[in-house]
Write a protein that binds this DNA or RNA. Structure first.
Length: 469
RNA sequence: GGCCCCAUCGUCUAACGGUUAGGACGCCAGCCUCUCACGUUGGUAAUACGGGUUCGAAUCCCGUUGGGGUCACCA
């Protein structure tokens, strides 16, 4: 399949999966799926000092959670070192690479000097034309970068971008410890894996011309590039940990839904009419890489939260119930796995008023166990005045059958009306009695989920509390 | 500092060169209501600046300003 579209996501396993990386993965995945292409996962771990197996796990888990499945890989670069060495040898043999004996200290001094004189920070190429044996010892390998002409990149998102080769320095392709560096490994891998479209963050744009030089040096076909704008923090700098949550695991822990995150991330720099809510299927149908905007976007937690609230109501309640369990366990109110069917009913009462799973779990506690009354509403609503009516209400509720919210609502209303009372007078006291606080789901929904027995028990407990005041 | 990218409400974004510059989040107010939410109605708020091109510019061109990215033996 020579015309097959092949894209890749190539994170380095040096920490949590950044939300910007998730967006990159998403765009690549979408592009592959829309074009019946292949989505390749590659782990770029050539920085031995910073890469960890744990981070690889986080990446895989994050993609899995987002529902982004890959077709090939994960390939791991440290397992492909022979390939890189072979390519480096080729450059050496054709005179396109050379040994550089400059020490880190020497290079650092060069940089400092250039900075002080306001000159471009560029390696001066002093080892470029060394005579055999002129210097020896520990050395790196540098690519002999072409020094004239221009490189024009026809970027899928940005349009035509031109770079002058004059200011491109000879980048290091092999460290003194013998390991290959990023710019070499990406090019070798992308070429060997047949990657046709490189979709990545704008922070890689200035790397692109150097990579193009390498493609040309190897005689490989240059892929198409698409550089997406970055996600910014409120201060308009690249989003990072210091702006708060920036990694996908944090969003998972905060009780966000992958549906909402996908929706939010895809709307950063892209739109389709006035539509705000997109399922993955809808995104697949409407999203186009070439419609993606060029300007960077500030990450807006509040809008994500709103979107998540929308998805809390859209994802099937049984599914929400299932995902809620770990969050309930974390709150410590549940000791054993709750019945899923019952949990789903509970979810139905809470989904309209919960922006995240964390919030929902927090609001669900009263369903599981009796809690101390919140001081202020207890004082205000659990009064000796109301106690007799609560007693009567308890007696009346015992007779209601079936014990579902519709029946409860209409019968309670009728019962109160025959006594010339409005629901309002009883609603808040009952709410405090049943939920121990002033805000809760609808009173009768609460009763239904609680069941007759617990409902009556809690009313009795409230009356006792009043009498003890 | 060199190179590169970017520029519409606070934020995310719409607007074949002709619109009262639209929508969404947020915020404010009203409505709905057993509380809180949800929902709903209305309000708030933007084309960075200066030159061109054109009958006509948010839109095309140039410049200025501002912001960002990148210049590692990181990726």
């Amino acid at each position: 399949m020579p015309n097959e579209i092949r894209v890749r996501f190539a994170p380095s396993p040096t920490g949590y999966l950044h939300i910007g990386g998730v967006r990159t993965a998403l765009y690549n995945w979408l592009f592959a799926r829309q074009n019946a292409g292949k989505f390749i996962l590659r782990i770029e771990d050539t920085d031995l000092n910073r890469s960890t197996a744990e981070a690889i796990r986080w990446i895989l888990d994050g993609l899995d959670w987002m529902g982004l499945d890959w077709d090939e890989g994960p390939f791991v670069q440290t397992e492909r070192l022979d390939l890189y060495n072979e390519h480096i040898d080729r450059l050496l043999a054709s005179g396109k690479a050379y040994r550089c004996f400059c020490t880190p200290a020497e290079l650092d001094a060069m940089r400092k000097k250039a900075l002080a004189q306001n000159l471009p920070l560029k390696y001066d190429g002093r080892c470029r034309n060394l005579k055999e044996g002129e210097r020896s010892g520990e050395h790196t390998l540098r690519f002999k970068a072409p020094q004239d002409g221009q490189i024009v990149i026809d970027d899928l998102i940005r349009g035509s971008v031109t770079f002058d080769q004059t200011q491109m320095d000879d980048l290091i392709i092999r460290r003194s410890d013998g390991s290959p560096t990023y710019n070499l490994t990406v090019v070798v891998d992308d070429a060997l894996m047949g990657v046709t479209h490189v979709i990545r963050g704008e922070d890689h744009l200035s790397n692109t011309p150097r990579q193009v030089q390498l493609y040309e040096a190897f005689g490989y076909l240059v892929p198409k590039f698409g550089h997406m704008s970055l996600i910014l923090g409120p201060d308009r700098e690249k989003l990072s940990k210091r702006h708060g949550a920036a990694s996908i695991s944090e969003f998972m822990e905060m009780g966000y839904l992958p549906e909402a995150l996908v929706n939010y991330l895809v709307r950063l720099g892209w739109s389709h009419g006035d539509q705000e809510i997109f399922s993955l299927e809808e995104v697949l149908e409407h999203w186009r890489l070439e419609d993606v905007g060029k300007s960077p976007a500030v990450f807006d937690h509040q809008k994500l939260e709103w979107l998540n609230g929308q998805w809390m109501k859209r994802v099937p309640s049984g599914e929400i119930a299932r995902r809620l369990i770990p969050f309930l366990e974390k709150t410590g109110v549940v000791d054993q796995a709750p019945d899923l069917e019952w949990l789903e009913k509970l979810v139905l009462t809470l989904r309209e008023r919960s922006l995240t799973l964390v919030e929902m779990a927090g609001k669900a506690d009263f369903y599981f166990k009796e809690l101390p009354y919140e001081a202020e509403p207890a004082q205000k609503f659990l009064t000796t005045d109301i106690e007799p009516l609560m007693e009567k209400a308890g007696e009346f509720l015992e007779t209601v059958d079936p014990f579902d919210h519709e029946t409860l609502y209409s019968k309670t209303k009728d019962w109160l009306e025959t006594r010339g009372l409005k629901l309002k007078v009883l609603a808040q006291p009952l709410r405090v009695a049943l939920t121990f606080r002033k805000d809760s789901p609808g009173l009768f929904e609460v009763m239904e989920v609680l069941g007759k027995e617990k409902t009556l028990k809690r009313i009795a407990r409230a009356r006792e509390w009043i009498r003890n005041q």
